[in-house]
Design a protein around this nucleic acid. Structure first.
Lengths: 362, 362
DNA sequence: CGGCGCGATGTTCACGTGAACAATGCCTGG
DNA sequence: CCAGGCATTGTTCACGTGAACATCGCGCCG
């Protein structure tokens, strides 16, 4: 196969420029249509359509002729016409704030891969700055875009807090939200992950565990903090004050500088691996050995975390599975034609134990 | 604004189910069309079209009436019909191997943002495993997808090496390739970046610089290695054997284990920050102090690199600018209607000096 | 005072596809 | 030998939009 066959915009090789038809000086007709193929193959356009869609009931010889004509002209079905005919686009819209975070980009990748396997494309609708206006703009644009359903990767309460709610009839799946009572939500089991991290540290013998959260606006961050607190309470341990970060390594570093001065702190649970990296640096620079003096656990299990110094104990998130379930969720909605079924679908996590945790030194 | 207005798939609030028309038991008509709005507003559908597109020559009162009807019914223009009418989709396809690498995901994000600003959406076409078959499949799918142009983020020679070439008439911009003689290529100035890194190390007094490359299939990796070699030669320095990695931190760690045994090695240039992280870990575990015993320079300037131990000196890539120029390039092609103008558009780099480099200890 | 021009609105049609129905021709059973 | 049936192919039309052209009515100018 030669990609020249693709012929996205190029005129057909033979230069078959439909001369006679309407359009005087305007836009030239660029694409090859079924009618062109039909004319060359000496059949009706309906027969071309049948061949194109693999329908039965076309004589073998005729089929060959049509296929040959298609190849000669470089015919590609026009998906706009198809979408118009069928009333759907085979496309899923994905709305998100940023691809910069590991979690988002890996989820999106999994969504794209899974969607492709199901014959769907995905259209990305990024919101660079999460202002109310930008969110609204994105949703408006989404309404105009050719999508059959939408996956929202963000804190839905950012929407609810404003004058915005998702339309009830739209096929939507949401990630990173607690709106399971109203929407179909797929997410990593944040609480379980946090529990695993805290219990691991307590089991090692630490009296308590400090916590470095992500931004307050993140639902995932809230969930992790909440589960951390509850797990400590359930174990009857004191709950140290929460440190606040913004997911970035630098914010982790800043928090680490403060934490390095806390003599009683022997264990920290960071809400993601980047911030854990910042903690490691801060502790290193302040002569607090990890894990001898202080243990650190992260969240996400980004590939780099195995090469942190020391290699990081962290909670593994299965982003691929999250993406897969998102796509399955919206496709179910599309195919069953029903409303979005509220409910939360939690993907389990697991703890990856490496070298950044150990029993307390003293 | 209430997102209920969006009405992607939901029937109009009033339940205006077009009863009489064709379609007996088949698919129900779900969306609101111009005709529905026209009927409610008591005008012709053409007038609705004019209002919808902001054309002049509609009486103020009529316009208000139409807008009111649109709002009542929750009208959204059907983009499939528009695309069919106009012959274009306002969508750019992006083909890539993986979103997992920092560079790719940030480039894609920039592309999406810039495209959105220009009124275009982007459709992601991922290729999970870069086999010839998968690549071909992606291009075929792309041919069927509703895109006006394509941005390819990968090593184009992977295509050329097979029986695949990009169609000459298609609007294409390529990233990570040297095919500037045939395609319109946008890329970071890899050679300049590598030169900056090597010269920085030589200027510090190192006799020579070792190099850890990325995968052989990556053009960026080849370019960096090539520039590294040439810069050393130009300075009359010996060229040490090349170490091979695969962009991952773990591969950097493996290379670092080997390198730690090289007594003469005082400076390493890693082809990306992840591998540099692996080097740092290996050197740390083998008691080779960075930067006292050995200096390390990375490439990319990922946000985390400022919190490596020690903070990494690295070459900053402006991914956002690359994305921006990709979109501009592709839009220029679409708007001018011409062929892809071959040529290479290089985005400059800059060296970010942190704590992982110093004059050689001895 | 009548015709002309122009602004506002309506009508028609094509974009490319594919479902529904119609037509054609060949084969088989009575 | 003819009718009926089936396999194959053709014809018509609608999907929703918007350009091109047609029409209508009003005001202005000669």
């Amino acid at each position: 196969m030669d990609l020249h066959d693709l012929n996205l915009q190029a005129p057909p090789p033979g230069g078959a420029q439909r001369g006679g038809s309407g359009i005087p000086g305007g836009r030239r007709k660029q694409r090859v249509s079924m009618a062109d193929v039909a004319k060359l193959a000496g059949v009706s356009s309906q027969t071309v359509s049948r061949v194109s869609n693999g329908h039965p009931g076309v004589f073998g010889g005729t089929r060959e002729q049509v296929l040959a004509a298609m190849r000669t002209l470089g015919y590609r079905p026009n998906s706009a016409a198809r979408a118009l005919r069928y009333g759907q686009f085979n496309t899923i819209g994905v709305i998100l704030f940023s691809l910069a975070s590991t979690g988002n980009s890996r989820t999106v990748e999994a969504i794209a891969t899974q969607a492709a396997a199901e014959g769907y494309g995905i259209t990305l609708i990024p919101i660079d700055v999460p202002t109310q206006d930008n969110v609204l703009g994105a949703f408006t644009r989404m309404g105009e875009l050719a999508v059959d359903a939408v996956i929202v990767i963000m804190e839905i309460h950012l929407l609810d807090s404003g004058r915005v709610t998702l339309p009830p009839g739209v096929h939507v799946v949401v990630v990173d939200s607690d709106a399971g009572d109203r929407y179909s939500v797929v997410d990593t089991d944040q609480a379980e992950g946090a529990r695993l991290a805290v219990r691991h540290l307590l089991a090692l013998g630490h009296q308590t565990v400090w916590h470095l959260t992500g931004p307050h606006s993140s639902f995932a961050s809230q969930r992790r903090a909440e589960a951390w607190r509850r797990t400590l309470r359930e174990a009857g341990r004191p709950v140290p004050p929460v440190l606040h970060g913004d997911w970035s390594a630098d914010s982790g570093y800043a928090a680490g500088l403060a934490l390095a001065e806390e003599p009683g702190c022997t264990a920290v649970f960071a809400a993601n691996d980047q911030m854990a990296l910042g903690l490691l640096r801060a502790f290193h620079e302040h002569g607090r050995a990890v894990p001898e003096d202080i243990s650190v656990v992260g969240f996400d299990d980004i590939p780099d975390s195995s090469c942190f110094i020391p290699p990081l104990t962290t909670v593994h998130q299965d982003f691929a599975e999250v993406g897969r379930r998102c796509v399955q969720g919206v496709l179910r909605q599309i195919r069953e034609g029903g409303e979005a079924r509220p409910g939360t679908d939690l993907v389990p996590t697991r703890l990856v134990t490496r070298a950044s945790t150990a029993p307390p030194g003293r």
